[in-house]
Design a protein around this nucleic acid. Structure first.
Length: 420
DNA sequence: CCTCCACCGGAAAGCCGGGTCA
DNA sequence: TGACCCGGCTTTCCGGTGGAGG
């Protein structure tokens, strides 16, 4: 058999194999909205009860939905609201509109309002530019447009706790939630549903919290059994009958439950495990595939994070790497001051002006939060206080991620005399 | 007990690129 | 075309901080 034929054979048999394992990959994707939500009866009932007054023309109270990632907050909320919209149509309630925005993705109050104007179709009529206006002016145009539509708007703001990050330090009157809640409408009504990772009293100031008058719905993390239920439900839709055994489901569920009951992670694990099985020409998905999938997901994520770092963060992590690779094993080498020295030299080498120590200290904290480095506060008494900074990922990971880089690649090699 | 080191980290302001408006 | 706005990144300023050394 020729080389070319071998390649063809491989590709074709992979496709045939794929046909034997994955029927439809959609149900394993994050954006898939199922028809049933196992173990979420209470939450479905609470949300439905809270919003249902719109069906008889009454104003529902605001709603605050909170829970960790992958607990089904967004999916359940969107599903309940889409059913509410259907019911409203059946009952000839024609003025209901549901808007959905994600605070973190849109990144700030200005873009949120612009997006809302688009969804409501008032961007054309009231001339809403995508930037350039003063926030107050933008808000006024939004309010006028909204009011003229004579509608009841259910506004879902996902990841709404990010507004604290973005709007920190601004007076209460500049807070988007506060403004939306106090908006003066004569012909329209607006109901705010906030979805957050934390309980609202943890991130919202007391003043806004009390004016919002929200009801709270809590999504508890799934336990391993519940994640197992979800995996079985989705596997039935996505995979062929006998390719997945109970053992693999349990491992998948246990790994995701150990994190914090994240169903999204469990589904991702299952999908990658299925892809591994296909790639290895296996007929079914085994526990080994699931465990390998976990390692591969973690590894890929770190590599991608490193590759995506901005220039100065890359220079910093290379500096931490370089200090760690020097022969002198002395903890005084790992201090902030020493790191700043190394980093400054590196910047000069690259003809890039170094940032100030203050900014670097900020970047160090960010990188610690990302898990790329460890920074432990250290008291050296008369010799001041500092942080001991070490790599949070294996040096080999740094090498793999950055060795292709035109400049950092050389630096990595120069610090590793025996690096081939 | 006081000093002093080597930083930490909050607050505020500056800079810059991308945009609108009259 | 100049005034103005926004958001992100960065600098400047400055008040802590906790324990070894004097």
């Amino acid at each position: 058999m020729s080389r070319s034929e071998e390649i063809l054979n491989q590709v074709f048999s992979n496709v045939v194999q794929n046909k034997c394992i994955i029927r439809d990959s959609e149900p394993l994707m994050e954006k898939f909205v199922p028809e049933a939500f196992p173990n979420r009866d209470d939450q479905i009932r609470s949300i439905a009860e809270a919003v249902s007054p719109v069906l008889i023309g009454r104003q529902p109270s605001n709603l605050s939905i909170y829970g960790k990632t992958g607990t089904g907050k967004t999916a359940v909320t969107r599903w309940v609201l889409s059913r509410l919209a259907d019911k409203a149509k059946e009952n000839s309630v024609s003025n209901l509109q549901i808007c959905y925005v994600n605070y973190r993705i849109l990144g700030g109050p200005y873009r949120i309002i612009v997006e809302l104007c688009k969804q409501l179709g008032i961007d054309k009529i009231n001339k809403i530019p995508c930037s350039g206006l003063a926030l107050g002016e933008l808000f006024d145009r939004f309010r006028e447009g909204l009011d003229s539509q004579k509608k009841t708007i259910i506004l879902v703001i996902d990841e709404v706790d990010w507004c604290i990050e973005k709007e920190r330090g601004k007076p209460q009157g500049n807070n988007l939630l506060y403004d939306l809640n106090r908006i003066q409408l004569s012909q329209s009504k607006i109901v705010i549903i906030g979805i957050a990772n934390r309980e609202s009293k943890e991130w919202l100031d007391a003043g806004t919290l009390s004016t919002l008058k929200t009801e709270e719905v809590h999504f508890l993390p799934y336990n391993a059994t519940e994640i197992g239920d979800i995996l079985r439900q989705r596997a039935n839709l996505a995979l062929f009958g006998a390719v997945l055994d109970e053992g693999s489901i349990n491992v998948c569920a246990a790994l995701a439950a150990a994190e914090h009951g994240d169903a999204r992670r469990a589904l991702n694990l299952l999908r990658v495990a299925a892809e591994l099985a296909i790639r290895r020409n296996n007929k079914s998905i085994t526990e080994k595939h699931v465990r390998d999938a976990e390692n591969s997901i973690d590894f890929d994520r770190v590599i991608q994070t490193l590759k995506d770092l901005p220039a100065h963060m890359k220079a910093l992590i290379i500096s931490v790497f370089a200090i760690g690779e020097t022969k002198v094993v002395d903890s005084s080498q790992h201090t902030t001051g020493r790191l700043y020295e190394t980093y400054s030299k590196l910047c000069k080498q690259m003809i890039m002006p170094p940032l100030t120590q203050r900014r670097v200290s900020q970047l160090i904290n960010e990188m610690e939060a990302m898990g790329l480095i460890h920074a432990v506060s250290l008291n050296l008494g008369h010799y001041g206080r500092t942080k001991k900074i070490t790599l949070g990922v294996a040096p080999s990971t740094i090498i793999i991620a950055l060795e292709e880089h035109p400049v950092y690649g050389d630096i990595i090699r120069s610090h590793l005399p025996f690096y081939a």
